[in-house]
């Protein structure tokens, strides 16, 4: 990287554009793969873009019992998720944000987004909203320690809680990066990812069945531009969680030099990896049924066990994840 501000600034803009532009497509791929696996045709790949465009032009409507919380929560949640984008190394290292943020901040920003939406869900006074809000915050509270332990497990060998530093170590070590603590940390992270992004078997993003929905129940009252912000934000969250998985588990391919060609190649690689990961989750999701809410606690306990086990094994093996 050159010493000027220009290159990091360009990379930062590139990252934002990548995530803003790509996240609806990733969602579409996921839905499509799931449909195909279940023997349906599935929506076209451009459908999420069309939906977003449609919502942006739609008339808005609010419950008369709702306050300003309902009106501003979607924008705050969107902003918090967008602010988390540069905390993930997408295609260049060192990350353009440099030393100014880490994964604990990422947890905080995800928490902020969840907090305001959960409040908005209570704002109207609908029972569904309260139910979804309570469940979502419950899951979030249980997921937070797992997230922290996962960060510790990935971060301890690199001596940093920054995703960029961890990925840089992985790129430098090459294949020697892979070892048992890393494997355990990855498994823990994948379990966490299912909970954080609200995929099956934890939450079913396609349902509107009152008794089972979690996230959908919270945003039931929304339409129009607010819904566009919420759904797009949800796309970021999916992209961020998957992007982080890729950066921590298989960082190879992220460009460490500033040449345009290599960076372009790295963009291609990361897009490919993201698509691949979404295809995998789509196939997985087509096969599993939603679990009871309280089994989520089992899943998260197991994830915590994996993360802690990773730290313990790193101690035996030395060097760590």
């Amino acid at each position: 990287m050159s010493g000027s501000f220009l290159a990091p600034a360009l990379a930062l803009v590139g990252e934002y554009l990548l995530v803003l532009g790509l996240s609806p497509l990733l969602l579409a791929v996921l839905r499509r793969v799931k449909a195909r696996t279940q023997g349906r045709i599935g929506p076209p790949l451009l459908q999420p873009y069309r939906d977003l465009w449609k919502w942006m032009g739609k008339d808005g409507i609010y419950a008369s019992s709702a306050s300003w919380i309902t009106r501003y929560a979607p924008a705050i949640s969107f902003a918090a998720l967008l602010a988390a984008v540069p905390l993930v190394p997408w295609f260049v290292l060192p990350t353009p944000l440099g030393p100014f943020g880490d994964l604990i901040l990422l947890v905080g920003l995800l928490g902020l987004s969840r907090f305001v939406i959960a409040l908005a869900a209570l704002d109207g006074g609908s029972t569904f909203g309260g139910m979804g809000s309570s469940r979502e915050m419950w899951m979030g509270a249980l997921a937070e320690p797992v997230f922290l332990l996962v960060i510790f497990a990935f971060g301890s060998p690199a001596g940093s809680t920054q995703a960029g530093a961890i990925a840089a170590r992985g790129v430098a070590l090459g294949i020697a990066y892979a070892n048992p603590p890393l494997l355990l940390a990855i498994v823990a992270y994948v379990l966490l990812l299912l909970v954080e992004t609200g995929r099956l078997p934890v939450d079913n993003p396609a349902t509107h069945l009152e008794l089972t929905m979690v996230h959908e129940a919270m945003v039931l009252e929304y339409t129009g531009r607010d819904l566009a912000l919420i759904e797009w934000g949800r796309g970021f969250k999916l992209a961020i969680m998957f992007g982080l998985l890729i950066a921590l588990a298989a960082p190879w391919g992220i460009s460490t030099s500033g040449t345009l060609l290599l960076v372009g190649l790295a963009v291609g690689i990361v897009v490919g990896k993201l698509l691949g990961a979404h295809v995998l989750v789509g196939r997985l999701e087509a096969r599993v049924a939603k679990w009871r809410l309280f089994r989520v606690a089992d899943l998260l306990t197991l994830a915590a066990v994996f993360a802690f086990g990773s730290l313990a094994l790193a101690y035996v093996i030395g060097g760590g994840a």
């Binding site: 892979a178 070892n179 048992p180 494997l183």
Partner: peptide, 9 residues
């Protein structure tokens, strides 16, 4: 090592 870790997982 990794195969052994799979056994543990």
């Amino acid at each position: 090592d990794i195969a052994a870790a799979v056994v543990l997982v």
